[in-house]
Amino acid sequence: MVTTTAARGRRRMVNGMAPPHPAVRGLKGIVLALCCAVVIVPFLSVVATSLADQEQITRAGGYVLWPQDPTFDAYAAIFRGGVVTRATLVSIGVTLVGSLLSVAVVALLAYSLSRPGSFGSRPVLMLVLVTLLFNAGMIPNYLLIKQLGLIDSWWALILPPLVSAFQVIIVRAFFLEVPKEIVDAARIDGAGELQILTRIMLPLSKAVLAVVALFQAVAYWSAFFNALLYLNSTEKWPLQLVLRTYVVDNAAIGTDLPGEVVPPQQSLQMAILVVSLVPILLVYPFLQKHFAKGVVIGAVKG
């Protein structure tokens, strides 16, 4: 009888703790469902509105939750116009180039700061930490970009956010966690610092570098303020600045559809918004497996 009672007690324990009461679990489920609804319902409304016609939009008061007879005329219109297509290509190019350069620079800087005795590591680390607290401001940054001759250049979108001090600290903390014996063994075999970085450190740090790449890709893809400041030519605008112009400023979107088929302006705006969201939604699942591991790397020592 005692053994049976003890076995039941062990079954009731989960990871050394008693499972929550069914009412508590039900309340947690309701709260989680509400949180998911807060995120999912607006997104579904945006997609549905982009597929709806003017009659459905008017009847629904501006935002449709479920379109009847969905049509892709809005997407055909924004891509035939050329502005959104060009802006999408610009955003993809800036995001790819910026993310790759950012990962490379962050990895190089973090590795140099993680090596004990490297020249100037302490002052440079202090400078990196200072940037977490202080920012030069908009006007000094603009004057710097102007002096470098980067006004109306795509490099003005890539170079300013290239290095994140927070990400440098995270990657440096990971490099410090790599056992010293591995590095010493590589040096005994004749490996130089560049070989140690490329053949040992980088393969071991795929998770944290994937997180850095994801954060930088989201930052580059979502940025519009630098484009607003530094770009004078509208043909160089990224997608987010086009989105801001057409959705936030409510500028009219020209169409080039044959005949008299003209999609509603709100459907066109929501279609641009969907186009701006889809790339990140497609990339994230491939990096998600690294995210949970990489985001906490360096947070716990020992």
Rank of each mutant, 00 (worst) to 15 (best):
Ile182Pro: 02
Ala156Lys: 03
Lys146Met: 14
Ala156Arg: 00
Lys180Tyr: 04
Ala156Asp: 05
Leu150Arg: 03
Ile169Glu: 02
Val183Lys: 04
Trp155Leu: 14
Arg172Phe: 11
Pro160Ser: 12
Asp152Tyr: 01
Asp184Met: 07
Ile151Cys: 06
Tyr142Asp: 03
Phe174Lys: 06
Trp154Ile: 14
Phe175Thr: 04
Leu150Val: 07
Ala156Pro: 00
Val163His: 01
Pro179Ile: 08
Pro179Gln: 08
Ala185His: 06
Leu159Trp: 11
Val163Cys: 10
Ala185Val: 09
Glu177Cys: 03
Pro160Phe: 05
Phe174Ser: 05
Phe166Glu: 00
Pro140Phe: 07
Val171Arg: 06
Val171Phe: 12
Asp184Gln: 12
Leu144Ala: 15
Leu143Met: 14
Lys146Arg: 15
Gly149Trp: 04
Leu148Met: 15
Pro161Trp: 07
Leu157Thr: 06
Phe166Tyr: 15
Pro160Trp: 03
Pro179Ala: 03
Ser153His: 10
Val178Leu: 13
Ala185Phe: 05
Asp184Tyr: 06
Ile158Val: 15
Ile158Cys: 01
Phe174Leu: 12
Glu177Ala: 14
Pro140Asn: 12
Phe174Ala: 10
Leu144Asp: 07
Ile182Glu: 07
Lys180Phe: 08
Leu150Tyr: 04
Tyr142Cys: 04
Pro160Gln: 11
Ile170Ala: 14
Leu148Cys: 11
Ile145Lys: 00
Pro160Met: 12
Val171Pro: 05
Gln147Arg: 12
Ser164Asp: 09
Lys146Ser: 14
Leu148Lys: 03
Ile170Thr: 14
Asn141Gln: 13
Ile151Trp: 04
Ile170Asp: 01
Asp152Thr: 10
Tyr142Lys: 04
Ile145Cys: 04
Gln167Arg: 11
Glu177Phe: 06
Phe166Trp: 15
Val183Pro: 00
Ile182Gly: 04
Gly149Gln: 11
Gln167Ala: 13
Val171Gln: 03
Ala185Cys: 06
Val183Ala: 05
Gln167Ser: 13
Leu162Gln: 03
Asn141Gly: 13
Val168His: 00
Ser153Asn: 13
Ile182His: 07
Asp184Cys: 02
Lys146Glu: 12
Gln147His: 10
Val171Cys: 10
Ala165Ile: 08
Leu176Ser: 14
Glu181Gly: 06
Pro179Val: 08
Ile170Phe: 13
Phe166Val: 10
Ala165Gly: 15
Leu162Trp: 03
Trp154Leu: 15
Lys146Phe: 13
